[in-house]
């Protein structure tokens, strides 16, 4: 398996940088596959971004009470996944946070004073408490029974996009690849250039581990790039001191690893084992706390299975 062909391609989308590494394919096949992936990524962004006014998400966010809307298949799919994870994490994962984010942004820009921000957050929370949005389980359709909730897919969209690209690469018979969304979600399949699987470092101030991704994804959520203020959708407020420096979650699906890593950032360590027990799709959770990394795995599966020694 020496001297395997290995090519990497980059593309800006979803306010970050995506990259695709493809191993064992001729350059032209790898380039065509990456081009199709990036076209797919751009198309997904146009459907899923709330900052694109014609997207499905923007149109959902403009729905009034009594409105219904037909959705793209992908929008329907990601909303169903988001609802499932919202329920499994008792609301720690929530895509209904768009207006909170807008309030924070307006305060940073000086449009709202700090005092106005606090009142605005309470108002948004109250509206969201009264809102009712139904996603049809049978057809790609959404109903707004009571308006007052607006969606932002920032905590699942990039992972979902990686899953979609992975599906496309499989269709193109590309078997060995890693797709990376701004280093916060990585999905790997098959073999890397030099080994039988892909490996990536995860590190804290005092430790570093190499985790192996064997047909799986890992996502991170942390304070390093976003500051120490973490929004908790369950109470509609910021938590000023987060429990962890960073959280990583691994799953076969990047949409799930992306969403669960966001939720786990708000969960107590004691809740992780229960979450793992009830959700077999999560392979492992890791946290960085006071510079030390601690792993949580499914029962009876040793941590060594996921680490490169």
């Amino acid at each position: 398996m020496q001297n395997k062909l290995h090519y990497e391609f980059e593309h800006q989308a979803m306010a970050t940088q995506f990259s695709i590494q493809i191993v064992g394919e001729e350059y032209e096949d790898a380039e065509t596959a990456s081009m199709l992936c990036f076209q797919r990524l751009d198309a997904l962004e146009l459907v899923l971004s709330r900052f694109v006014p014609d997207s499905d998400i923007s149109r959902i966010n403009r729905m009034k009470s009594g409105d219904e809307l037909l959705l793209d298949f992908e929008t329907w799919d990601v909303l169903k996944k988001a609802i499932a994870i919202h329920q499994k994490t008792d609301g720690a994962f929530d895509i209904g946070v768009a207006e909170y984010v807008d309030v924070f942004r307006a305060t940073k820009q000086g449009i709202l004073s700090d005092f106005e921000m606090v009142n605005a957050l309470q108002s948004v929370f109250k509206k969201a408490q009264n809102a009712s949005i139904y996603v049809d389980p049978e057809t790609p359709k959404i109903y707004c029974v009571q308006e007052g909730m607006t969606f932002d897919l920032g905590a699942i969209g990039k992972g979902f996009a990686l899953d979609q690209l992975s599906e496309l690469l499989e269709e193109l018979s590309i078997k060995n690849y890693v797709i990376n969304a701004g280093n916060s979600s990585v999905l790997a399949k098959g073999v890397s250039k030099n080994a039988s699987c892909w490996s990536f470092p995860i590190s804290s101030a005092r430790e570093e581990f190499a985790v192996q991704l064997n047909n799986s994804a890992v996502s991170a959520t942390g304070t390093f790039f976003q500051g120490d203020h973490i929004f908790d959708p369950r109470i509609g407020q910021n938590i000023c001191n987060s429990m962890y420096e960073r959280v990583w979650v691994s799953s076969q699906s990047a949409a799930l690893s992306d969403a669960y890593s966001t939720a786990c950032f708000l969960l107590e360590k004691e809740q992780f084992n229960e979450l793992l027990q009830n959700n077999s799709e999560i392979a492992w959770i890791a946290i960085s706390e006071n510079g030390k990394i601690q792993f949580f795995t499914q029962k009876n599966i040793p941590l060594a299975q996921y680490l490169i020694s």
Binding site: K80, A82, I83, G96, A128, Y134, E138, M149
Partner: peptide, 11 residues
């Protein structure tokens, strides 16, 4: 009015 939030169902 208490909302049901975001749910998977047909109203």
């Amino acid at each position: 009015l208490a909302g049901t939030g975001l749910v998977l169902a047909n109203p």
